[in-house]
Structure formats: structure tokens, C-alpha cells
Amino acid sequence: MINLTIDDKKIEAPDGATVLEAARLARIDIPTLCHDPRMKPFGACRLCIVEIGGLPRPVTSCTTPATEGMVVVTTNSKLERLRKTTVELLLSDHPNDCMVCIQAGQCSLQELAYRYGLRENRFKGAVRQHNRVDNNPFIMREQDKCVLCGLCVRVCDEVEGVAAIGFANRGFESDICPPFKKDLDCEFCGQCVAVCPTGALSGKMWAGQPRLEQTRSTETTCTYCGCGCNLTLHTHADKVVRVTSRPDNHNRGWLCVKGRFGYEFIASPERLTTPLIRRQKGGPLEPAGWDETLDLVASRLTAIRDQHGADAVAGLASARCTNEENYLFQKMFRAGIGTNNVDHCARY
């Protein structure tokens, strides 16, 4: 363990911790735009600057290892002035369109502008115009809102192992793009969208839907493969409008294209909405009431059992459905019908 002092607080941090990590362990707030504890430190946004006893200038706390006996100051008028100027510079090249931005309420930059009270901007000049619309159904890039924190580039490389995007050009012309500035062509996992601190990356399916703040959240488990990722379903007016995943769960908040963007089937107009009965072989399936249908199912299955024996009836359970449903299903066949003819298609 390392012992250090941050803002006059004695703090114990594990070996290898950075100053930022040590401060956050002690619940000391240091603003960041480019930091995500699931990735390597990057030191791009300069907001996490702190003063360290013995060093002549402020340093970025996210890239500075904590050392024994270190004395750290995270906030004073000089540091706050520097941070405010950094945010002001970012905002000088940022569309002032929070009213219509999808990220409003969740945006780290908006939060910083609010914190520093930046209604006016001392810096005026050219603004970047590299917006583009990709020909894919998932990811919206509005790059005039990009703060070049590099989280999207790093998550795609460090976590996803795909490296579909990178930094191009230098200085004012810097931007994030796929090789040769082509259309985004990737796995569409949306990890980049999930880590973007501003509205530069968002889901195309989310456009015009309620913003996150207007939705109700339900914690649940993904319905697709056997990874068992935790999902947060965001709903509005009895409809799923967005899917996210918390970073503190066992899948660390990472999802795939199906988990993150494959939710539209829930509200598909093709969903079955009423019981259906085929009243004669070869005839059509016709809508029916629940009671009639349930009675028919029970009476036909028991009639077959009574005439041909319990083993003339069988059930195929579901590897998609819940434990409780599967339990009750096999119990119905074993205890209700009297057969062990119960299996499911994916048992291998």
C-alpha cells in the first residue's frame, strides 16, 4: 500500500494506483473527459490536472503514479482557472445545440460548462465542419461535437480488438475516422457510443426518442447468447427505447450489436397478440379466447394420454425462456401428464 496526502486527507492506495485512482478511492472529485477505469490512462483532456508537492507545474493525475509520501492538491483557484479555460476552449469549437442534442443531460461537456458557468466564451474563431452521415443503421457520427478524448478509438482497439477507427490529421483538423475516411464498417458493437462523453456518437435508432433522463430503467439479463450480459432496458410509454449496460457488472458494461441494438423485435407489429386455434386439419389458424384455448390444450393432451398412454405426449422446452418456466413445464409433463418425454433443442 502507498500512503499519500490528497487535499489534506491522509489516503491509503494500492500499489500501482495512479493519483486519480487514489483520489477517487477517497471519493475526492476530479473532473475528467477522457478517462475510463476500464481502459489505460490517456492524458488527453487535461482536466484531471493536480498540483504535486515538489513539481513546478500541474500534472495530469490520470497518468501520474501515486508514490509514498506524495502531497497532492486537486483544487485551488489556479487549477480551477486552468480547467475552466480548457473547457472554454473545447466549447469554442462545439455547436451550442444542447437543446436538440441527444446527449443533453448525460453529456460530460455540458456538465462541465454548467459547473464553470460558461455562458459566454472568450474564444471566437473557426469551427470544425466534419459532420458526416454513414450508411449504417446503428451508429450516428456528429463529429463537430467530438472533443478528441480518444475513448472511442481506445475502446475499439483495447477492448474490442477491432481498431476500426483511429485519429487522422493534426491540430485543428484532427478527427476520428475509419481508414481512408470511408464509411464506418465495423462490428457495430456500439462500445464507442457507450463511452463517448458527448453527443458525437449516438445510436441512430435513438434519434427522436426520449433522452435517457426521460426513461424508466429496468435491470435485466440479455436474451441472446450464453454470455449472460446484464442489460438496462430504458423504457418510455411502455416501449423499450434504448439498451445500455452498467460498467460495474460482470460484463463490465460491454455489449455486442445484438444486445445493444437488437431490441426492436420486442415492439414488432408481427408479434402474436391473441391465441389461435386451427379448428380443422388443413384449415386456417383463427383467433380465439384464452379460456377456450387453454381448455382445448389441456383436454386434447389428456385425451391423447388417456387413449394412447402418457408416453404418446411430449414437450419441447426452451433454452430461451426462464428457469421458472422451464421448471414448471417439465413438472407439468412429469407430474401432470405422467411422462418423462421432455427435452429441449439445445441441450448439448
Binding site: A319, V342, R347
Partner: peptide
């Protein structure tokens, strides 16, 4: 699939 393990655990075999 999401609940292959569970369907097996629940005795759907």
C-alpha cells in the same frame, strides 16, 4: 443460447 444451462438445470431433459 441465453438459458441452455438453466433449461438443463431445470430438468428439461
Amino acid at each position: 443460447q441465453n438459458n441452455v444451462q438453466g433449461a438443463c438445470d431445470m430438468g428439461c431433459l
